[in-house]
Nucleic acid binder design. Structure first.
Lengths: 184, 184, 184, 184
DNA sequence: TCCTAAGCGAGACGGTACGTCTTGTCTTCCA
DNA sequence: TGGAAGACAAGACGTACCGTCTCGCTTAGGA
């Protein structure tokens, strides 16, 4: 693929991020994105079908990057995903705040939520107790995590990922008790 | 106020709810709302500045109704809001699913979330331990609850509110341990 | 129909005429028409499907006006249409020059040509000789007339309609000889 | 010049002709022309500045061919151009119908008309009478001829060139009377 | 009971954004 | 070096909504 293509696309991604931080997703116009990215509007449409396609593309790379960074730091733990995820979020603050923050990012959140749910569900495979529906538990945990994550990021990610992870683990004692891995 | 006014407004609310359940909020057009509500488009604008104003109006009445139903069944408990809220949600399934459900309802969710956060924060006033930031805990709990609630409603609210409340309490053991009321 | 509608439409017609005289038909943009007519571009499209529809509408009124003015001055003559037509053209110079003139007006010309052909064909009904195909004759006469008309208008319609009609009749002696009305 | 160049150009000409017969000139796209001619779009622009340049080039060669074929069969006659032109047209039916035919070809027609006008004007040099403006006569004759020619071609050029020429001469008796060459 | 202020429907209007299409320039490879 | 491929900017197109507005019709509800 042409080097120009890569340049154009990343310029578009950056512009989208930047504008979403101010106006939110819905309030951002394709024309504005192009103006900020210094790209012709028709060029935009040769790369992406619409604004959503651009966002999905951005999300996909976040997803890839997240999944990969998790594999590097495997933890044999019901809440193993927590710390890697927090670290990843802090490294990509702008992306996260743009996609998840403010009022608009429901779809983006839903996407991240979905990735997380997959991870949590997989981690639960090895737990022994099943007194509550696994689905409820997954949604509980992911919902709680997303809320804490969003709150943390929206305030500027002041605390360290480790502090947040500890606090989250304490609060999740009830969940942990039920889904402790089998072999301990 | 004219009786016609009330009729017009409630027709608009009903139409919005109905359409949001199918197309989602963003995919719903003022024109469609009016067509469904059998109301002239210009009439719409004499009542509401825009689609958002209509939604906010609907949310406000849900909020009122929710706050009121909670006062009727006060519980002196860190998780006292859970059961009343679940019951209220089940009584107004359509409203909740329309405003919170599926892919679109981020803003509506945020609104409900805000109401809940107020309630939880108030309940926490009487707790003794403060090992983690109160804000984290509030966000944790509300996020978890909203996620469970949304999941429950999206699947048709099959389980009873009591079942859900029990499951939620079990999962929240960690939270509860830290915010147990002072006087026990 | 609203008075505003009439105003809008005639403003659009006037703008089209004006711009066609400078840029020609194809070089004229819907946006320019709207700017000149001081009309919103979206309003344009509530009245006409596209630029062509606007032109056709203008042509239709010319057609009506022409046919009517002809009925007022009936001439029992194979070339009866000539003088009325020339007079009509001079009265509506701008319309004619815009629609027929320059390089663009082929479609408009074709339309006027069609009207004329109908008239000529009808006048030929009463002629006795048929040594050449009637169609050839009709096309011959109409083509010649349109060419002379266009030439006359493009140069500013300096000569009087009567002068032009006389010249045209002289040149058409061959045609007239063959299609002289039966009863003389 | 490379042989490939000639091949490319003639492929483009052929494609233009072919497409004009179906879609008309304005409805024909540079991209389509290239697709039909099996030529890259960028290659098109290395040969012609735009669609018009391609057409003009095609017209020019018709013009050359026409002027030359006329010299071969000179007639010392006011209407001397008629028969050669008709014959030429029939030999190049496709070119003529594409450029002149149907609804679109005003510019092409104008071009041919211009060539003809030159010829006629030159033939008139030797005529004695000047009772009407020479310009009117030229336009009259050329207009009539073009109309008859177009009509003839559009219907498939069924009649022989000789038949058409005779008919045309009969109809032009008035013109001929006035512009009969001096020496008879 | 009437008549007057309102609610209301219809729809013209100016905007803004959309996604599509075509044009002409320019760059990069290939044969 | 001529040609193919295709990225790119520019800008017109026709569509879809939006929010404002004007215009009459109807319909309460107070005089």
């Amino acid at each position: 693929m042409d080097r120009r293509v890569a340049r154009t696309r990343s310029a578009l991604h950056a512009a989208l991020i930047e504008l979403m931080l101010t106006r939110g997703y819905d309030g951002t116009t394709v024309e504005e994105i192009c103006r900020v990215a210094k790209v012709g509007r028709s060029t935009f449409y040769t790369h992406y079908a619409d604004k959503d396609a651009l966002k999905r593309d951005g999300l996909a790379s976040i997803g890839r990057s997240l999944r990969q960074s998790r594999h590097e730091t495997v933890r044999d733990d019901a809440l193993g995903f927590v710390l890697p995820m927090l670290r990843h979020a802090r490294e990509h603050v702008d992306h996260y705040r743009a996609l998840a923050g403010g009022h608009g990012g429901s779809m983006a959140l839903a996407s991240i939520r979905e990735i997380l749910a997959g991870i949590v569900r997989q981690e639960m495979r090895s737990s022994r107790r099943r007194t509550v529906s696994a689905d409820v538990a997954v949604n509980y945990l992911v919902g709680a995590f997303m809320a804490v994550l969003t709150w943390w990021l929206d305030r500027g990610a002041i605390e360290s990922p480790e502090q947040m992870a500890d606090a989250f683990r304490d609060l999740s004692a009830g969940y942990a008790a039920m889904h402790r891995p089998t072999r301990n």
